[in-house]
Computed example of a mutant assay.
Amino acid sequence: MSGLSMRLAPVSWPLVRPFRIARAEYRTVEALRLELHDGRGNRGRSEALGDDYHGESVASMRRQLEDSRARVEAGIQRVPLIEDFPRGGARHLLDAALWDLEAKRSGVPAWRAAGIGEPRRRVTAFTVGLGDGEELAAELRRVAGFPLLKLKVGGDDPRPLIERVRRTHPDAELILDANAAWSIAQLRSWLPALPGLGVSLLEQPLPPGEDEALADLDHAVPIAADESVDDTATLPPLIGRYDAVNIKLDKAGGLTEALRLADAAGAAGLAVMVGCMGGSSLAMAPAAVLAQRARWIDLDGPLLQREDVSPPIRYEAGWMGFPEPELWG
């Protein structure tokens, strides 16, 4: 793919309310947008936040891409990206833009090129950040009737929060996400109550590096790796310790590697969840392809923001549509 022109632009998305997790608080989503133009009227584009858990930022992604501009514009290819670029947000931006550009040039949608069946709308989690009092009550009113909620928790006993949510959302499926904030003692103490509270998935309870403690843990609720898994290379140590993996394109370094990771996870008997770092519908679009294969989906970034791109992905009462070709792919 020769004769490309690369354009980069930062974008800031204000959030509906401050979003808190165990290790951070966010008031805006800072992302980088990339466009590739082929000089023949075709454009591929993407948006990513990068992997802040590993120290990435808009500035670091931009530096990496600017340092590689000559190689990109000389005609970089999507598949060799996995060998030529380290995993992370910059590679994801290039990968996603190349998927889009290939679709625009060929007329073959990205989902078909990826070997995915005819896309359909899917249930996505709505993530409820850390909070209490009226702030939490307002958030729960906003998602009345949503079929899947993801509750962020810290190092405190999560059972009072779950019980409160259950009073207003008795039928919702619940995912609990500790963002690696628990100790093994806390996990052993709180885990037995989770099935009775209707929790269907527990995400990353322990810090990365402590995963071996899960190997002999008796648990009825599946446990998913998030911070412990990035790409295919990081999967083998997790087999036999986790029941599922949360695949995020910013961490994996793009849809191409994420699809490989999903294949490897499935072969190892692990269920697939697809998540995001946040962002607009453009940031969600490539992950929507992988979402067609996932057991759990957490692609609610646009729902947490005050604004979105046009045309947006359509969200309705916890259901996520598939991106229009005009948006991506």
Rank of each mutant, 00 (worst) to 15 (best):
L136A: 05
V123A: 12
I116S: 02
A113T: 11
D157W: 13
A178R: 00
E139R: 11
E134G: 09
S106H: 13
L161Y: 00
E173T: 12
N179F: 05
L161N: 00
L136E: 05
P160C: 00
V153T: 08
T168D: 12
R105V: 13
A178P: 01
R112N: 11
A178W: 02
P147R: 08
G107L: 03
N179A: 08
L176G: 01
D171L: 13
G133H: 05
I116G: 09
E134K: 11
H169G: 01
L136V: 05
V143R: 04
D156E: 15
G117S: 13
A114I: 06
V153W: 04
D157N: 14
G145L: 06
E139S: 08
F146K: 12
D171C: 15
T168W: 02
A137I: 02
W111A: 01
L101R: 04
R164M: 13
K152P: 09
F146N: 09
E134D: 15
V143Q: 03
K150Q: 14
R121W: 15
R166E: 00
A114N: 07
R167Q: 14
V128W: 02
E134P: 01
A110P: 08
D157P: 00
L149V: 05
R159F: 00
G131S: 05
E139Q: 12
N179C: 09
D156M: 14
I116V: 15
L140A: 09
E163Q: 09
W111D: 06
R141D: 15
A172L: 01
A180E: 10
A110C: 12
L149G: 07
